[in-house]
Design a protein around this nucleic acid. Structure first.
Lengths: 217, 217
DNA sequence: CTTCGATTCAAACATATGTTTAAATCGAAC
DNA sequence: GTTCGATTTAAACATATGTTTGAATCGAAG
């Protein structure tokens, strides 16, 4: 018989490792974080990582997937809903609503579970991580939802040349990634930035910013 | 005799190490790049780094300083010129001109010398580098010019609440950092992005974007 | 209680890192 | 040509890393 969880301890160990790795990968970086640091903080044996995940790289993949797959589902649903609504009404979707459909779940996700903030900060940085391992795993998970966002934005702004839309989206994602990362864990917040970095406050500032940028004449 | 007179080899070795380190730090990251990789690519002995710079950390500092100090001087001059002009005319500076004064020299710098593109990409990422060493060195060099940019922007948008200005500037810097990094070296450009990523083209897209975001109602 | 596969554990492994050392080499001033 | 300080060089050093191993331990089924 293969399965079920006859043991209570297995899930615990896997979960403890994932939590600890998520936190440390986000705060210290993937390569700088050692398996000994992860297992030490998690209170499990060093070999547990390779037993349960196979390798450090596979652990990173699991850290990403655990939260990014559900988050992507939410973002996809919202984007498709906006698309359907537009088709139904025979109108183009509003730029602001499209951006909102992507950004809101992303930033709100920070408050959903403990540790989610770290994952969001990690994702914010993975965009431009110099490490090929990190970027490859990241883009495999995030690529399709970006494609959908781009296409929905094209519906909202059909008069914009595609190349310009492409780059403006990049500017917006840069602003979002920076926000995700800098507001993700305290160590990256310079003094004076602590005010008004609650999720709702950030949303009320970021969405008008990127909307205006996207629609700039 | 195309060969330069090797009167003293010191400058040559230092220069070779700086060039090689700049390239590798930008493309692979600070911690992932080993001194052996740097000296190997530079064709100098491993111990030369510690002899000429003292440590790997001091080498990173030298890599930053070599280009960032001159670049900061240009940005400071432009910003102060805009400020003086505004005072002279008794008007507030235009938001677009302020942003332009900071962004234009930054992106144009990419084309100034070979290797500058790598440095710009490295700077773009250092904003949110998880490594304390990198961030500490970076903010020491970049902090004062950011302060000046913030103050000049406050002159341009005095009606904006300071906290909102703070965060909008952060969004703009996020867009800039992302652009600096992604357009800095080819390995970070997904397919399809290669078009229109020349400096002038980027400027003509980025400056209207961040200006509109800054001035959003 | 015994058995057996799944898990945990301490130890070892092979390799890579930044740094140091001490001898060799170079370039010019004497 | 000799001398001397500055540089280069190969080797060693101490430490850290991801991974593997084989025995110990655990939990329930027989």
């Amino acid at each position: 018989m293969k399965v079920k969880k006859p043991k209570t301890r297995q899930k615990d160990t896997r979960q403890l490792i994932l939590d600890s790795a998520e936190r440390l990968f986000a705060r210290e970086g993937f390569h700088v974080t050692s398996l000994r640091a992860i297992t030490g903080a998690a209170g499990v044996n060093l070999a547990a990582v390779n037993y349960h995940f196979g390798s450090k790289e596979a652990l990173l993949e699991a850290v990403f997937e655990r939260r990014l797959i559900p988050l992507n589902q939410v973002r996809r649903d919202k984007l498709e809903q906006i698309r359907d609504e537009a088709v139904e009404k025979g109108k183009r979707p509003s730029t602001k609503k499209v951006l909102q459909a992507f950004i809101e779940p992303t930033l709100r996700f920070r408050d959903s579970e403990s540790g989610a903030k770290d994952l969001i900060a990690l994702v914010g940085r993975s965009f431009t991580d110099p490490d090929d391992t990190v970027r490859k795993i990241f883009f495999r998970l995030i690529g399709p939802i970006f494609q959908l966002l781009f296409e929905t934005l094209r519906d909202a702004l059909p008069e914009l040349p595609e190349n310009l839309l492409y780059w403006r989206l990049h500017f917006a994602l840069g602003a979002l990634a920076h926000t995700m990362h800098i507001s993700g864990c305290d160590k990256f917040l310079p003094v004076g930035f602590s005010d008004g970095c609650g999720t709702e406050s950030l949303l009320s500032m970021l969405i008008p910013f990127v909307t205006a940028g996207m629609e700039a004449s």
